[in-house]
Amino acid sequence: MSKEIITTDAVIVGAGPVGLFAIFQLGLVDIKCHVVDILDRPGGQCAELYPEKPIYDIPGYPEITGQALTDNLLAQAAPFAPVFHHGQMVEGLRRLDDGRFELATNGGLVFHTKVLVIAAGGGSFMPKRPPFRNIESFEQSSVFYAVRRIEDFRERNVVIAGGGDSALDWTLNLEPVASRVTLIHRRDKFRAAPDSVAKMQALAKAGRIDFRMGQIMELHGEDGRLRALSGRGADGAAFELEAERLLPFFGLTMKLGPLAEWGLNLNENLIPVNTENFETSEAGIFSIGDINTYPGKLKLILSGFHEAALMAQAAFRIVHPEEKMVFQYTTSSTKLKQKLGVG
C-alpha cells in the first residue's frame, strides 16, 4: 500500500495550549505546521481534564477557563492555517538522509518534516487499564478499550464496565450484535447523555440487556480467552458472571507512549532540553511545555509559551537557512500584521 506523504516545515506533537501557541510563534517566522494529537479535539489537558475550571496564572487573564484559553489560542493561531490531525498518535520517528524527519502515526499518516516540536504535555492520553490481575493477557483477544471492529463482538457475551458516554453508547450499539450485553457500573447515576441512559434503562426493563450495579474485581479465563468475571455488587454481595468480551471504560490517563522509543535522551520520562532554544539531544527536534525539563523548570502554561517563542527562532534557522532572521514586534511590523491579517 503506498501512502501519501505529508510534507511540511514543522510537525507539532500535542495540541495543548503550548502546542497551539507554537503554531502562532512558528507562523510569525513563516513556518507552516501540522499538528498531531491523540485526542479528538484541541486543548490537551485544558480541554480534557478541566475545560470548565478557571486558571488564574495566565498573564493578562485574571481568570480564564481551560476551554476559553483553548478557544483563544485557536483564534490566535488561525491566521497561520495549521492543519490538525486528531485521534492520531505518532508512533514512529526516523531521520531521513536529507536531515528531515519521517513520522508515522497509528492511523497510517506519514509526515516528512524539517523540524519536530514535541509539546506532548504529560504524554498521550490512553485508556485507563483497570488493575485486574492478568488483564494484559486478555488484551487484544477478549479485553478491548475501544470498539475497532464490531465483528469482534458478534454473538459474544459482552460485558461493558463504566458509567460514561462510551459505556452507554456501546451498550446501545452492541445490544443488537452481541448475544448478550451486561453493563456494570458502581452506582445508578451515570455521567452520560440522559437520552442514552433512558434508552439503556428501557432495554434493561425489556430484558434485552442486563444492568448490574457493582464493580468488577477479577477476570477469569485461560490463554487470553476470557471466561468469567467476578466482583462485588453495590449491595456488597459477591457475584460471578460469564463473559467472553470485556470493554472497560474508565476514562483516560497520560502515558509517555511510543515517544520513549524515539532515541531521545530522557530524564525520568521528561525530555531534557537546553534553555537557549529548547532543542533536545537531537538537532531539529524541540521539546516545549510540561514534557521537557531543564534546571529551574516550572510546569506552567506560561513557561511553555516562552519556550515556544525561543524555539521558533531556532526552528527558523533550520527551515529557512538562507534567510536572515529579523526580530520584529507584532505591534509595529507591517509584515507581521499582514501575516496576522490585520495589516
Partner: peptide, 11 residues
C-alpha cells in the same frame, strides 16, 4: 467527586 470515583478501583 462521586463522578470521579467512577474511575477508582474497589470503591
Amino acid at each position: 467527586e462521586d463522578d470521579m470515583l467512577d474511575f477508582a478501583f474497589d470503591v
